Amino acid sequence: MSLSVLFRTLRTEVAKVTVCQHVQSLHTGCQLLAADKALLLKLRKDTGYTFINCKKALEKFDNDIAQAETWLNEQAHKEGWSKATKLGGRKAKEGLIGLFVRDKAAVMVEVNCETDFVARNEKFQQLVKDVAFATLAHHQNKVKGQTGYMKSILAGDELNKLSVSEGASLADQVALTIGRLGENMAVKRAVTVFVPSEWHIGSYMHGAVSGQTDVNMGQYGALVVFQGGEEGAQEALGRKLGQHVVGEAPLSLGNEDDLPCGDSETRLLPQTLLSDSSMTVAQFLRGQQARVLDFVRFHCGETTSEAAK
């Protein structure tokens, strides 16, 4: 074989190898892109972060989804605290009331955001659950071993200091949610009640968010502590009383023998029963052989002065 023919043969073989390597590279690259897309979709679904941030995290950690999620949470937490500082002056009057009743204990909380759109977001609703369960756990530890009726009211900084999972505070959880959703938020207030075995807790939520099961959420909530009632019918009675408290907004309990003072009546017992205008709440309770001992009403977004009217 002549030297020129040998060179032509070598060039052809090299070209073939190069083409094969290029095709293989393209094929391998397509496989990686497909894998990246699947991981990207999963990370986006699991965390709720934007596609851009999820893609950045996967690229940073060579498609390790666990490290990518941890990094995203850390960044959201940092960004959340920064945003919380920047957005602190913006009004947050929307949000949700969260209400949870379990046996002889109940908790009701209010968490605020800026818009109704964010209030419908599952990440915000998870924050409401976190606040409710953290408040209940705190109160259970505080009253452990005690008996009788116990009621606890927390607000602002007292709530923000409560612990959630792995030592994080509610303030941390709020900052993380702000980082994810980009709105100012605030944990406004919470009330927890514990009752003796012979007492009952009624509850009612108005404007409830559909799909919620463990923690009821809505715009108006009420807890009513009472005794008596027909055996087996206390839950229905408690709901009826809670509905009245939400609808008529009493400010105090009053006495059983108080006389009604018209449309401006703000005492619960002399008020006309919401579901039956022929009787007062006190008259209804006598017929049920029941007695209301306490109640709490929350309206999302109300100011302290409005709640006291």
Rank of each mutant, 00 (worst) to 15 (best):
F133M: 12
A168I: 01
G232C: 09
A186Q: 12
F226I: 08
E248H: 12
Q212Y: 00
G254C: 09
H139A: 13
V143N: 02
N160S: 12
K161E: 11
V191L: 06
L253S: 10
L259W: 01
V191D: 01
F133C: 07
K161V: 10
Q234A: 09
E230F: 03
G232R: 06
T135G: 03
L259D: 14
L162I: 08
G145C: 13
V195E: 04
K188D: 05
A233K: 14
G242N: 07
L251I: 10
K188S: 13
A222T: 04
K142E: 13
L253C: 08
M205W: 04
G182E: 03
H244L: 12
G167Q: 11
L241D: 14
L259P: 04
G228Q: 07
G221Y: 08
G182V: 02
I178M: 09
G232H: 01
V143M: 01
K161P: 09
S169Q: 07
F226R: 06
C261Q: 14
V225F: 07
P250L: 10
K240H: 05
L237C: 04
V128G: 05
C261P: 02
A222G: 05
A175Y: 08
T135P: 12
L136Q: 08
I153C: 04
A137Y: 01
Q219H: 02
K240A: 15
G218Q: 11
V224M: 07
S165R: 15
A222Y: 04
M205E: 03
T213I: 11
Q173S: 14
V143W: 10
F133G: 01
V225D: 04
Q219M: 04
K188E: 09
